[in-house]
Design a protein around this nucleic acid. Sequence first.
DNA 1: ATTATCGGGACACAAAACGTCCCGAACAAG
DNA 2: CTTGTTCGGGACGTTTTGTGTCCCGATAAT
Lengths: 342, 342
Amino acid sequence: MKQIWHVLDSVHPELVAEVRKRHDVLRYIHLLQPVGRRNLTTHLQLTERTIRTEMESLQELGLISSNNRGMSLTRKGFHILQQLDAYLRDSSDLGSLAAELEERLAIEEVIVVAGDSEQDPLVKKEMGRQAALKLVSLFEHASVVSLTGGTSVASVAELMPSLQEFPDLLFLPARGGLGQKMETQANTLVSMMAEKAGGRYRLLHLPDHLSEASYQSLKKEPQIKEYLNLIAESDIIVHGIGDALNMAEKRQMDDSILQLLQQEKAVGEAFGYYFNQQGDVVYKMPNIGIQLDQVRNASYVLAVAGGASKAKAIAAVAKQQLQQVLVTDQAAAERLLGETRR
Amino acid sequence: MKQIWHVLDSVHPELVAEVRKRHDVLRYIHLLQPVGRRNLTTHLQLTERTIRTEMESLQELGLISSNNRGMSLTRKGFHILQQLDAYLRDSSDLGSLAAELEERLAIEEVIVVAGDSEQDPLVKKEMGRQAALKLVSLFEHASVVSLTGGTSVASVAELMPSLQEFPDLLFLPARGGLGQKMETQANTLVSMMAEKAGGRYRLLHLPDHLSEASYQSLKKEPQIKEYLNLIAESDIIVHGIGDALNMAEKRQMDDSILQLLQQEKAVGEAFGYYFNQQGDVVYKMPNIGIQLDQVRNASYVLAVAGGASKAKAIAAVAKQQLQQVLVTDQAAAERLLGETRR
DNA sequence: ATTATCGGGACACAAAACGTCCCGAACAAG
DNA sequence: CTTGTTCGGGACGTTTTGTGTCCCGATAAT
């Protein structure tokens, strides 16, 4: 696939550059939609006028539409962008980065986005966009989709196109956590994504700070049990990956647990499980939700995480061999390869 | 592969049109090289000026060179054209025509060229060009190449680029025929092709009209035997396919044999063998040369034949399952599919 | 009501592409 | 040798396309 770009570049370099430019325009329109010309100029390094001519062409091709609020992708534009993404990815250096990661982490498909999501918020958006594009392509073969919280998954939900074509899809929070920020956020993301997909969803709100006793009895509630049954049948799971200590702090965990995590050298977190560098589970949060073995049963597990500081966490979680797809950024990818190369 | 062209066409139709145009220019430069601007305008439907701008771009890209005699492809240009050909073929209707033929005739690779080689001499050239492009890509894994005569194979030799990179390649006439036009022509083609490839060659000139007795004793000559041993080791065989009765007439065969061919309903000819519609051998010319079983041993057998009138002949010869590659034209392909569909 | 932002219209200007004609060099035919 | 043809390339005015810049009414948020 890389070959064809080389040939096209050899026979007509200007036009390949044109396609790249047009792809960038489409990309940013999707990232920022609805967006206006002047707003785009600040992100792309193009003048207003050139963006305008691009816009007019794209409009004529039926890839974007524009109203008073700005420009947006049409359904066709979304579909084309999706494919163009895949083709252009192979032609860039990020393609080989991704291929190397696929081998190193033993993950089927790795998508690497340019930049550092910790520096540039647009990079996190781009990760979300790529994950969203991948996600919707999996929708038609699935019936249950479950999500975790986190800013990365949030960007996936944000960048999801409003297709409203999947009335039979059921969206669930992967864990009905114990009233903590991340878990309540998951509920928000579930409803947002379900609405965009046109599917159904079910939430699980639980009160804060339950005692161990009521936590145990809660598990036996018929309503909760039904939810747990549903979640076990997830076809697709979208989740973030956290740096262990950061996550523990955010969750305001007890000092005793913090000490345990430090002692066990926990580096990564996902689904409330904490992993050390070898990928072993060293701690599991007490929560209502999907179990690690159930994650393994899903046909597609999509992880979204970026930033150099998360490299170790990603490597640790990847050792569990849960994911089919990983969307990350250049910063994390390079750090990760730099470390595992030793 | 067809998919990527659809995407590119959706996102930038001008680009695809431009690439097609540039490809056409390269193609015709190769067909007619060395050729001038004004000469090209008569074949392409472009004005002199546009050809000139194309020419300047291509020159800057190092794909063509020009001197006082006209423009020619550079080595790089040849290489790029070769790949561009393959990519663009898939995007056209001819691609699906070819795919259908591959299935129908059970041939690995079928290349269909637009037009009718019986109407437009350039179409025969284009067949030769395509065959030559394919051929040189096989050279590096081969050591012995043998050819038959015929206008189709002649066009292959004509359109062969002068690479002169294969000093170890040995070219042979597939049959050292009995002094007939087609067979002496094969000698010419062998030397021409060997010279362009920079390889060695060996010819086999035999006198006219030998008696059966001397023909048999000739076979035992050490020189002939050596030649027959060499030819049996052919890795690549390039041959044409003839309409049985036409061939018989051209060869001025005896009436008795003509009657035999008519009686047995011979329709196709290759290597001096005559085949009926079922693909059975109904007659074999008495000649010194490659045997059908030896053809089967070659790693690549490349047939070149076009024109609607040859459809039946191609179908008949294909039944022998000798060829890995068939280069033909649109006219033959459509007639052929029309007939076998019944 | 005010402010900001949207797409789109307008227009001058720069750059690229095109049509057209000419020129000397190289080569083939006579 | 001369003559005629064809080659690439230079030259130049015209057309087309793309770009920079400013303005406008509509619309939504404040």
